[in-house]
Design a protein around this nucleic acid. Structure first.
Length: 719
RNA sequence: GCGGGCGUGGCGAAAGUGGUAAACGCAGCGGACUUAAAAUCCGCCGGCCGUAUGGCCUUGCCGGUUCAAGUCCGGCCGCCCGCACCA
């Protein structure tokens, strides 16, 4: 008797069978026999409260791999946990008066139930949340150990301040000059912050990128670009004196002459400059300092014009549009330095296009062979000396509006004349180091990772500030430093600061009254080692057995952030002896899946409408409630703001989890975006029905399969 | 500007190392079943000519290599993503 496939009966039945058999629990190394291991992991979710279709796709892809490995006889680890610290919990607390912890754990319960309905082959026995004190306590222990080994430190620096979330952001978390979560324009602020010494591993992180053959090329490139290694020369320009600048008023000229402050400056250290083009040194016509360069600050202190210029630069802001549109601004300091090879002097300017964050915050300007320098020189009437000419040009070669940056022959350059660029670089560097004016240097774009956050819902940084003993680590026996439960969210800023008693402690060394650190750790720290915790809570041989993750699956939006931090963390953990992972690479294979997209719908009055609020009538779409026509817009990533999301629970309730999973896997290749359509899901459902009827039509499926080695099933299914 | 990726029917897309382009699915059309509809099943479904056997054309564009090119090479065009005043 033919039956119809009813996922609402079939799916719970088999889920219960898998659970009671403990089918998906990973086997510890010692009991695994000869089976090779496979650690399959999807990026763990933030417990926002609801699963979305993007989750379904991400975890369905990982589940296919995990099941395939299991079928091939691997000992598979495929666990699940919760990336549970973060701002949304605090926002919920402020908006609704719920405690962030209560909110988070309730969300976890809801989402766990949804996950279980999806029928994934997960090992739930290793589940945890990063906001569990056991988890963040261990993280605090690691933090202190990293500190002992000099991989964590505190320094005052200019930081990215998000005025909406009221917290500091790492460089990686500032996108187009805006906070990655809040979208607010990021401000620069001077604060004392905790840093992870990620630059210590810059070279190694870059070399490692080369070995990651099972990563998407795109992600490898993004990592390499972010680390941004460049070889060059760091050199010094010695002071030559101060002169009134051209065009300055008589009054100002006299002021410049008599300034004692300037004299002192001229006795200070020479100006350090980083360059990748020492071959063009003979083309140098000025020096430019960043407005944030210490010298610019010193000058501002004694010269109100400099101070005004710095303010002008600061007012331009740091956002992308600003930088794009920004004119080259310059201020001539009236100071001069000596050219290293020739008997001439170069004026020292302050220029807005020089970044303090890269190199030394000062450059030598070679207008003929650098577009920015050329724009600057043309604007401020500085000389342009061509020193590289194309191979087919003669000595009359000159530069107009475009700098020449291509290959060629060096000329107008004394001992470098006639050399090609590469040879000239080496020759110039040799001469500079011979004269003790500089040395070959490797510069990285990568900055140390600022991890202090002025928020409540995160891992407390386990240190104590004592007036006499300074910064004192919390003794290991006092870990974890727990978050207090009784906090208020009525005042802006960090609730930990406003707590009446939490930060008051005794100094562990001298017992004097002291203060707890109130900053918490960036939540990216939590996600930088969770895969280690999955392998084992403490057993190092078990960690060595499971790591690295063989196949990692997640969105490409973490191409730099999470993946770079994790690669740093495993290296650091290896160094301090917590993890035995010589390669330092946490993820042997990486797969970045495409997004789930959906059509967007807009009502006549401009409201976004959800797919459940519209109906299709022949060729036109109408709003169900009003019957009015609907504007069908672009297919876009599902998002709350455009309201083009679909609820996985509704789909699962109607078609079953297998259909939802089959659709997101089969409609488009996993690495590409998939457009969610009702018709597509119905097609997937029909397919599932057909599979069922093929199987159902077998005379005696179970007997035939075992007796004849699947031949009947094959025949039927091929037919 | 720099870097990475992509371009195949009405749509999502298949085509290990060059070897029958368009598998599979969606939508569409025709048919069976039904009083009817839904569901299910069967057939057709890149373009042009032809009643048909069949012929010609077709993988963004132009050219090249080859017995043979979606696939390899050169040059364009277009789209997507990332980074960007990084010295």
């Amino acid at each position: 008797m033919a039956t119809r496939y009813d996922p609402l009966i079939a799916e719970p039945k088999w889920r219960a069978a898998w659970d009671s058999a403990g089918l998906y629990e990973a086997t510890p190394h010692d009991d695994a026999g000869d089976a090779p291991k496979a650690f399959v992991l999807e990026m763990f979710p933030y417990p926002s409260g609801r699963l979305h279709v993007g989750h379904v796709r991400n975890y369905a892809i990982g589940d296919v791999i995990a099941r395939h490995k299991r079928a091939k006889g691997y000992n598979v680890l495929h666990p699940m946990a919760w990336d549970a610290f973060g701002m949304p919990a605090e926002n919920a607390a402020m908006e609704r008066g719920v405690h962030p912890g209560k909110w988070t754990y309730a969300n976890i319960d809801a989402m766990r139930a949804q996950f279980q309905k999806l029928g994934l082959s997960l090992d739930w026995s290793r589940e945890f949340a990063t906001c569990d004190p056991e988890y963040y306590g261990e993280q605090q222990r690691l933090f202190l150990k990293l500190m002992e080994h000099g991989l964590v430190y505190r320094k005052a620096s200019k930081v990215n301040w998000d005025p909406v979330d009221q917290t500091v952001l790492a460089n990686e978390q500032v996108i187009d000059g805006k906070g990655w979560r809040s979208g607010a324009a990021v401000e620069q602020k001077d604060l004392t912050q905790w840093f992870f010494r990620i630059t210590e591993f810059a070279d190694d992180l870059l070399d490692g990128v080369q070995t990651l053959n099972a990563w998407p090329e795109k992600v490898r490139t993004m990592q390499a670009n972010w680390i941004g290694r460049s070889e060059g020369l760091q050199m010094r320009f010695e002071w030559a004196g101060a002169h009134a600048r051209q065009g300055a008023s008589a009054k100002r000229r006299s002021k410049l002459k008599i300034s004692d402050g300037r004299k002192t400056l001229l006795e200070s250290a020479p100006i350090a400059v980083f360059t990748t083009r020492p071959d063009t040194l003979f083309g140098a016509s000025f020096i430019a300092l960043s407005p944030d360069h210490p010298l610019s600050r010193d000058l501002a202190a004694i010269d109100t014009e400099v101070a005004a210029f710095r303010d002008q630069c600061a007012a331009l802001g740091t956002s992308e549009e600003m930088i794009e549109k920004a004119d080259k601004l310059g201020y001539n300091t009236g100071l001069f330095v000596r050219h290293p090879f020739e008997d001439r002097i170069l004026p020292v300017w302050i220029a807005n296009f020089v970044l303090m964050g890269y190199g030394t915050g000062a450059i030598f300007g070679c207008p003929a062979h650098d577009q920015r320098d050329l724009d600057f020189a043309r604007k401020f009437h500085l000389p342009v000396y061509p020193v590289v000419r194309p191979n087919d040009a003669d000595a009359t070669f000159s530069v107009g509006r475009e700098a020449y940056t291509g290959p060629g022959v060096i000329f107008n350059s004394d001992f470098l004349d006639g050399l090609d660029i590469q040879t000239a670089k080496v020759a110039a560097m040799d001469k500079i180091s011979e004269r003790s004016l500089g040395e070959k240097t490797i510069n990285f774009r990568l900055r140390d990772w600022g991890v202090s956050r002025q928020r409540y819902w995160g891992c407390p940084i386990p240190v104590i500030h004592c007036d006499t003993c300074g910064v004192v680590p919390v003794p290991e026996s006092d870990l974890p430093v727990r978050l207090p439960d009784d906090v208020g969210f009525d005042k802006p800023g960090n609730p930990l600061v406003h707590h009446p008693t939490w930060s008051s402690v005794e100094c562990p060394i001298c017992s004097a009254p002291a203060r707890r650190e109130t900053d918490t750790l960036d939540t990216f720290v939590d996600s930088s080692w969770y895969f280690v915790r999955f392998a084992s809570e403490a057993d190092k041989s078990e960690r060595a057995y499971w790591l690295p993750v063989d196949q990692y699956i997640g969105g490409v939006e973490h191409a730099v952030l999470h993946l770079l931090y994790s690669r740093f963390f495993t290296r650091a953990l290896h160094r301090i002896g917590e993890v035995d992972l010589p390669s330092g690479e946490p993820f042997a294979g990486l797969f970045t899946q495409g997004m789930v997209t959906h059509e967007t719908y807009k009502a006549e009055d401009g409201r976004w409408l959800s797919p459940t609020e519209v109906d299709r009538q022949v060729d036109t779409w109408r709003e169900t409630a009003t019957g009015k026509p609907v504007d069908v817009g672009a297919v876009e990533k599902m998002s709350k703001s455009k309201r083009n999301t679909v609820d996985p629970d509704v789909i699962i309730g109607e078609f079953g989890a297998d259909v939802a999973r089959f659709f997101v896997l089969s409609d488009s290749p996993p690495e590409r975006d998939v457009e969610w359509t009702q018709a597509g899901v119905e097609g997937a459902s029909r397919f599932a029905q057909r599979v069922w009827s093929v199987f159902d039509a077998l005379p005696d499926p179970v007997d035939r399969i075992t007796a004849t080695g699947t031949s009947d099933l094959r025949k039927f299914s091929h037919k």
